[in-house]
């Protein structure tokens, strides 16, 4: 591939962005939608920039990041060892599989009232509901990763004289890492969704969810779009961050 072709290929993802901005500008310029409901791209991004650099939006952004990361961290600390334990015995996993699948299928938002009763109105409720949702996702991915460890690899370790513990730590654990990262990525995405929803409705004073909700209540449309974009950027960045960590630590995944 020539240098010019490489550059063209790298710029390809920007085509969609440019198209969206063009349509948006056009719709706004021709006043096809009420400008109060749909502000211009420039106004929206100016609000986003000002809000992130000097306004309250930046503070809310950091708050949401902190809540999402702490709930994912709590989920990982509990779910990863538990997943390894469950995955290392198929019988054990099958015995609790229904429970895991049931609660994994239960919308985490339906758990808010219960967690409100348990933890009251505050960060603990938001973080624990998000950790609950993310934890189940991580748990079942880790367990499957351990259960689906390549049989040949386990046999190879066994035939070389590895004890059960050695097989667990030297082989199963590493074998399950790619699937563990799938769980972590899905978990952090889910945690962000839950945190944003919780910030909207569970008596919050800060966070991106609260910002979107408040902007809507005040009919501050540029502020609302700015907060939505900030939330989108956060979700994208978290996913990218976990992908980069995964590539660094699980260099063999998919090879």
């Amino acid at each position: 591939m020539t240098g010019r072709q490489q550059i063209a290929r790298a710029l390809l993802p920007l085509v969609g962005v440019a198209m969206l901005l063009a349509v948006w500008t056009l719709v706004n310029g021709l006043k096809l939608v009420d400008p109060v409901l749909l502000p211009s791209p420039t106004e929206t991004f100016r609000t986003l920039w000002e809000g992130m650099t000097s306004g309250k939006l930046g503070v809310d952004f950091v708050k949401t990041v902190a809540r999402t990361i702490s709930s994912t961290a709590i989920a990982a600390v509990i779910a990863i060892p538990l997943g390894i334990l469950l995955g290392s015995s198929e019988k054990l996993y099958r015995s609790v599989e229904f429970l895991i699948d049931f609660f994994r299928s239960t919308p985490a938002s339906a758990m808010f009232p219960l967690f409100l009763v348990l933890f009251g109105v505050g960060d603990r409720t938001k973080i624990s509901v998000a950790a609950f949702g993310a934890g189940l996702v991580i748990l079942f991915n880790v367990a499957y990763g351990v259960m689906n460890a390549r049989k040949t690899r386990l046999l190879a370790a066994k035939v070389m004289g590895a004890s059960r513990t050695r097989v667990l730590f030297d082989v199963m654990l590493l074998e399950s890492l790619p699937q563990t990262f799938v769980g972590l990525r899905n978990g952090v995405s889910l945690a962000l969704v839950i945190i944003v929803v919780a910030e909207m409705f569970i008596g919050s004073t800060d966070g991106l969810g609260q910002r979107v909700f408040e902007a809507q209540q005040l009919f501050d449309m540029p502020g609302m779009y700015a907060a939505i974009f900030a939330a989108g950027a956060l979700g994208y960045a978290l996913n990218l961050l976990f992908l980069l960590i995964e590539r660094r630590f699980v260099h063999w995944a998919g090879r």
């Binding site: 390549r150 049989k151 040949t152 690899r153 046999l155 190879a156 035939v159 030297d170 082989v171 590493l174 890492l177 260099h251 063999w252 090879r255």
Partner: peptide, 14 residues
């Protein structure tokens, strides 16, 4: 010593 047919799955990629 034991050598498996499926070397891809017998070696440790990490």
């Amino acid at each position: 010593g034991y050598v498996f047919q499926n070397y891809r799955e017998a070696l440790f990629p990490w």
